[in-house]
Design a protein around this nucleic acid. Structure first.
Length: 921
RNA sequence: GCCUUGGUGGUGAAAUGGUAGACACGAGGGACUUAAAAUCCCUUGGGCAGCAAUGUCCGUACCGGUUCGAGUCCGGUCCGAGGCACCA
């Protein structure tokens, strides 16, 4: 009987939809396992063949874990709020909800064809009010919390207020934005509005003014990770820096925990490293320099990681945006400084980046006193110092910092070397090595000693103190857009007030147009009666990462309307055991999610410190484009191999007209009218196309749609092939060449169960050779799946099937476990064969076959290895190996060694010492 | 510039320090067939010797080291990919 994948696949997909065998058990005594895919943004283009790569990998793992006896949670949903749907809405006037729903339906249809084992009853959409109720809820929790540095966790704002009443701002050690200190009395005397403004400086979700990435073309602010090279990630529009009051999340309060938490995660080193760099912890010192502007004395705190170089300070630099600029600008220099500031302000972020190498700056007119040497150095202003990092002011040591060096050279400032023998005539000496000189009490010490010594010294003398700084900034949390979660905040007499929890969700209002208003307000300002309790509601909405930050928790308990997740349910599922998705979320979603989870953990709503235990990054699938070569100025196309003889023009050709790089000439002529009458210069009667690996995109005619593959080869073949292409983590081009190989394998496997047209398996007991084939495969699959080496598992499967064909094996005792082994990879064909083998219950409820090593071990002889007259260890070696050969292998071994016979390898530990003699038992 | 990766046939790729190139594609040859498709069998890293079975040497980007033994470990160089980039 033919392997009719179409019939088989539609039959089982219908069955799974009806019987829902992938629902996790409630109140299960089984161990849990939570496998999660990064949910997709449903774009209008639909899925291409690259999207399912990670989904297939996670599906294989989920099915495998189920067979291994785990209670598996494997859900799917949609990250449905976002810019593209809204941009489309602005152009067409169509409600983003409509396009989003259409796209979701298409995604669902495409995913269903691949046979994923999701529990679709748990589907979530971030744009669904029942879901975003909990996004808003979490925001309110952040609004009413502050970060207590002593307890190192989030606490209710009420505690803060109580502390302020007792001892003013000094009574609390909490993460906060800059503000003037106040006493308890002052606090009590504050008006409601003043109090509320002050509390904003402490809330974890807070409103604050800061320099933001403003994208005029999109009409919204963007987070740092949404900007690449000064352009918006979506759309590629220029982004400029602008001071604005925005909702923000105090992610920076969690920087230390976010960094330290990485150590215990099973993520790749490169990804952890990316997060470490993004968080950017540096241990340094804050030192106060007294500055003099005319007669006025102003203390300025700087941050440095190299206090040991303080004797080499020859000038100081302030960021142009620093508040100190005004205070430290002398009357004479005011005009020059103002001009410089105006220049800086005009630049877009992109210009700033592209002009990275040009050095600019202006002298402020003031001088700073070096607290160690009492020397007077000039204070400069330059945009190479960032306002947002450290204190926005630095001490410049041109001899040992390349940026200070460039600045000193440009403006002819002195350079004092501090390390014996270092040459600073051409460039600065940044390395932390050598012996200190010109440095007072540090002279003669190595740089490493000096770094620590100087820190201690500065602290002891009260000149400064140690400080840990992070690069991680607070996340800008508002977007001036329509298609996002509304903030549950209204403005009562100008005071930001939370909408009560029991009034959530605050649903998105209908509006007639999705553009900003004529006065530049966000689209929500167009809504009629966008008020609460008679007061105006916030008109910006939340960014994309809001809805994706805690979705993994919601999957545990998606229909609960009392809580984000029930405490007991959360206790059972804990967190995600395996998370699969792309690296592009390294510094966005994966940071925000960890932050969000830690916050919920602090409040007791999530019971795990980290959301994602193990993370696997699937590679991207690139397109493989094909080219034809037109002989310039003619109507002729020349085949790849003969192209050098002509002057040619390379033209992308639709890959659907090409098979194994051979052009279907007739199809090409019919492709477009202008190719109707073209002629071909062939080689060996065929037209060979050129090829290149490029991004999969419509314009390059190289998009492969999974639906087409399912039509011609079936979902099982697609699944196997995507995994057979290479390691999951690796990026690779899609190349339909080779798909025949896995398709052939499935057909061969199918045929093992048939004698001509009839299903026929034998009940005979299996032979040793047959058992060996089976158990080798079980062993291989078990160890390979755990390390995501799916491609080698499939290879092992192909070998096993070839072996069984050679053995003419049709025994049930071998074939039945093989079906179970194949199920994670090719579930449809496996279910069908399982049913034919007489099982009424689906293969989902089967058990992974047990590996028996005895069946796979070669028949070896045991040798005893002795030296110094004593037998020290025994070695198993194949019988075919003679005594001399064994001796040659063993002689000289001092460590762990392995012995090889044709196939099996035996491991022995060799006791150190010289081998004198080999005794064969 | 810094960090993280990777470099193996015509192609995708395998190899806990132990026969490098499994498995698959492609290519070449053959069987079946009137023919094609499908299926099956053989060859397929390179050089040299041989009618042949086979033998033999060289080969995992380059140079060096550790080891009885290195694609794998260590040091250096070159090239590619990804991330960060005035973060003091």
């Amino acid at each position: 009987m033919e392997y009719d994948f179409k019939k088989i696949e539609s039959k089982w997909q219908a069955r799974w939809a009806k019987e829902k065998p992938f629902k996790p058990e409630e109140n299960s005594s089984k161990p849990k396992y939570y496998v999660l895919d990064m949910f997709p943004y449903p774009s209008g283009a639909g899925l291409h063949v690259g999207h399912p790569l990670g989904y297939i990998a996670s599906d294989i793992y989920s099915r495998y874990k189920r067979l291994k006896g785990f209670n598996v949670l494997h859900p799917m949903g949609y990250d449905a709020f976002g810019l593209p749907a809204e941009q489309y809405a602005i152009q067409t006037g169509q409600h983003p909800e409509k396009t989003t729903t259409d796209n979701i339906n298409r995604y669902r249809q495409q995913m269903d064809r691949i046979g994923f084992s999701y529990d679709w009853d748990r589907e979530i959409r971030t744009c669904d009010p029942g879901y975003y109720k909990w996004t808003q809820w979490a925001f309110l929790k952040m609004f009413s919390s502050y970060y207590d540095n002593k307890a190192d966790k989030a606490m209710p704002v009420e505690n803060l207020i109580a502390a302020f009443e007792k001892g003013g701002s000094a009574a609390v050690d909490a993460a906060h934005s800059d503000h003037k200190p106040f006493t308890a009395e002052e606090w009590k005397a504050f008006s409601e509005k003043e109090k509320s403004r002050m509390l904003m400086n402490y809330r974890i979700a807070y409103q604050g003014e800061s320099t933001v990435n403003w994208c005029p073309a999109l009409g919204t602010v963007l987070a740092n990770d949404e900007v690449k090279d000064g352009l918006s990630e979506r759309g590629g529009f220029p982004v400029e820096q602008k001071k604005m009051t925005q909702w923000q999340l105090r992610v920076s309060a969690y920087a230390g925990r976010l960094l330290d938490g990485l150590d215990n995660l099973d993520w790749t080193d490169s990804l952890k490293e990316m997060q470490r760099n993004w968080i950017g912890r540096s241990y340094g010192t804050e030192v106060v320099f007294n500055c003099i502007n005319g007669k006025e004395e102003i203390p300025v705190t700087i941050f440095t990681t190299r206090v040991d170089t303080i004797f080499g300070v020859t000038f100081m630099v302030l960021a142009p945006e620093s508040e100190l600029v005004e205070k430290l600008t002398s009357d004479q220099q005011k005009a020059a400084v103002d001009e410089y500031l105006a220049q800086c302000k005009k630049k877009t972020e992109r210009e700033r980046i592209s002009e990275t190498k040009s050095v600019t700056g202006v002298f402020s007119g003031s001088y700073a006193i070096n607290p160690l040497t009492n020397e007077k150095v000039p204070v400069w202003i330059s945009e190479y110092v960032l306002a947002g990092y450290g204190t926005g002011a630095i001490m410049a040591v041109p001899a040992h910092d390349s940026r200070d060096y460039a600045f000193a050279k440009k403006f002819n400032l002195p350079i004092i070397p501090l390390i014996e023998g270092c040459d600073v005539s051409e460039q600065s000496f940044d390395a932390k090595e050598g012996i200190m000189c010109n440095s007072g009490f540090l002279n003669g010490k190595t740089v490493k000693e000096a770094i620590e010594f100087a820190k201690d010294y500065v602290e002891e003398k009260g000149l400064g103190k140690r400080k840990v700084n992070y690069r991680l900034r607070d996340a800008i949390f508002s977007r001036q857009r329509y298609w996002g979660e509304p903030f549950p905040i209204y403005y009562k007499d100008g005071i930001a007030t939370p909408v009560p929890e029991d009034k959530l969700p605050l649903t998105l209002p209908e509006i007639d147009q999705y553009k900003p208003t004529e006065t530049g307000e966000p689209p929500l300002a167009r809504a009629k009666d966008w008020t609460f309790d008679g007061y105006p509601l916030e008109t910006s909405t939340m960014p994309g990462f809001a809805g994706s930050s805690a979705y993994y928790l919601r999957y545990m308990d998606p229909h609960n309307d009392k809580a984000l997740v029930d405490a007991d349910v959360d206790k059972y599922w804990q967190n995600v055991d395996l998370y699969i998705g792309g690296t592009e979320h390294a510094t966005g979603h994966l940071i925000y999610s960890r932050f969000w989870n830690k916050f919920l953990f602090d409040l007791g709503y999530s019971c795990a410190q980290e959301p994602f235990k193990k993370l696997v990054n699937q590679g991207m699938i690139q397109g493989r484009s094909n080219f034809v070569y037109r002989v310039v100025g003619t109507n002729k196309f020349v085949s790849l191999g003969l192209r050098d003889q002509y002057e040619t023009q390379e033209i992308h050709v639709d890959i659907n007209l090409v098979r194994n790089d051979r052009l279907d000439i007739e199809a090409f002529r019919n492709w477009r009218p202008e190719f109707k009458d073209v002629e071909f210069i062939l080689e060996n009667g065929e037209y060979i196309c050129g090829w290149a690996v490029e991004k999969m995109s419509k314009s390059m005619f190289n998009v492969v749609n999974p639906d087409n593959i399912c039509d011609t080869y079936g979902a099982d073949t697609l699944r196997l092939y995507e995994m057979f292409l290479g390691p999951v983590e690796q990026s690779k081009p899609w190349d339909t060449k080779g798909i025949d190989g896995v398709n052939r394998f499935l057909k061969k496997f199918w045929k093992l169960f048939f004698d001509g047209e009839n299903f026929s398996v034998s009940d005979e007991a299996p032979s040793a050779a047959e058992l060996k084939v089976l158990h080798k495969l079980i062993g291989k699959e078990q160890s390979d799946i755990e390390s995501f080496s799916y491609n080698t598992t499939i290879s092992a499967f192909m070998i096993a099937v070839n072996d069984l064909i050679a053995l003419k094996c049709n025994k049930k005792a071998i074939l039945e476990p093989m079906v179970v082994l194949l199920c994670p990879f090719a579930p449809h064909i496996s279910e069908e064969l399982w049913e034919m083998l007489g099982h009424t219950e689906g293969i989902t409820y089967a058990t992974f076959p047990e590996y028996v090593e005895a069946y796979t071990v070669e028949n070896n002889a045991t040798y005893a290895v002795s030296f110094n007259g004593k037998t020290r260890f025994t070695v198993e070696l194949p019988k075919s190996m003679g005594k001399d050969e064994v001796e040659a292998h063993v002689r000289g071994l001092e460590q762990t060694a392995k012995y090889v016979d044709g196939k099996s390898i035996v491991k022995v530990i060799v006791v150190p010492g010289k081998i004198v003699n080999i005794v064969i038992k």
